[in-house]
């Protein structure tokens, strides 16, 4: 790891201020992506602003179908939250299957979506749930937030404070992990919303990160059952291909995982 300066933020304002003091500063949330990257000397932030002690950014609240998750809330907290489990079981399931217990104890929802790894789980969840990402400056819809592989709508120094979600009527997530890394080789989140619309978001497969599968959304809107997807063909031209999975195999997984997500959503 290259030399860096550590700062501990006490509030959202403090964090933004600390980060703005240097161009090369970065927020440090759970550190479960940033620190491994720094250890391999693939990132060299001059300053790290630790968010783990910003109490405004932590915790889960659910009221009247509105869910708010602080950006510094860990995967473990989301996974074991009984409120999330009843308001949006698919999301609890998703969080419970990120990494391993130790990673879930540290890694946070804010860090995960700010990083927007093409194989991360949360992006699929938030896109399918049509979540709103609340920053220190504004609110951004998930469709606009995830702009491509490792890329988001965040501006320099912009801090994610929370994620807001309207509880869907049904939600399910199915993940086929990469055998080695256990990140998603393909993960599909399916959500049926109060207005009857359905969103299907796919992670791990797209060559430009998370994407929505419009044909499946249409098919499921008229018939929310695994069988409804049978007739959908997944185009593999935009899918990733690597030593673990060809684009054709990923296309197959998109369909299989989508069906399993629908089945899980019940």
């Amino acid at each position: 790891m290259y030399a860096t300066n550590y700062h501990r933020a006490s509030s959202v304002e403090d964090a933004v201020k600390l980060a703005s003091s240097n161009d090369e500063a970065k927020y440090l949330s759970g550190g479960q992506t940033l620190l491994p990257t720094m250890k391999q000397r693939l990132a060299a932030p001059s300053d790290l602003v630790d968010l783990r002690h910003v109490s405004d950014m932590k915790g889960i609240s659910v009221s009247g179908g509105s869910i708010r998750i602080g950006a510094a809330t860990t995967h473990a907290e989301v996974a074991k939250s009984s409120e999330i489990a009843s308001a949006c079981p698919g999301l609890a399931h998703l969080a419970a299957h990120i990494g391993d217990p130790h990673v879930r104890h540290m890694g946070t929802i804010g860090g995960s979506i700010a990083n927007n790894d093409p194989a991360a789980d949360y992006p699929a969840g938030l896109v399918a749930l049509n979540a709103t990402i609340v920053t220190n400056k504004r609110s951004i819809g998930a469709d606009d937030f995830f702009t491509g592989m490792f890329d988001t709508a965040l501006e320099d120094g912009e801090l994610i404070v929370a994620v807001e979600i309207k509880a869907p009527s049904k939600s399910g997530y199915a993940k086929f992990p990469n055998p080695a890394s256990r990140y998603a080789m393909t993960g599909v989140f399916v959500a049926k919303h109060g207005d009857g619309s359905v969103r299907v978001a796919v992670t791990g497969a797209g060559s430009d990160g998370v994407f929505r599968q419009a044909d499946m959304e249409q098919a499921l809107a008229s018939d929310f059952s695994a069988g409804a997807i049978d007739g959908v063909t997944v185009d593999d031209s935009e899918l990733m291909s690597d030593i673990h999975a060809s684009s054709a195999y990923r296309a197959n997984l998109v369909k299989v995982m989508a069906k399993r997500a629908v089945a899980a959503a019940g």
């Binding site: 550590y6 440090l28 550190g31 479960q32 620190l35 491994p36 250890k39 790290l48 217990p101 130790h102 990673v103 104890h105 540290m106």
Partner: peptide, 8 residues
């Protein structure tokens, strides 16, 4: 439980 290699 945390990974002490992934925490400063």
């Amino acid at each position: 439980a945390v990974k002490s290699c992934t925490m400063l």
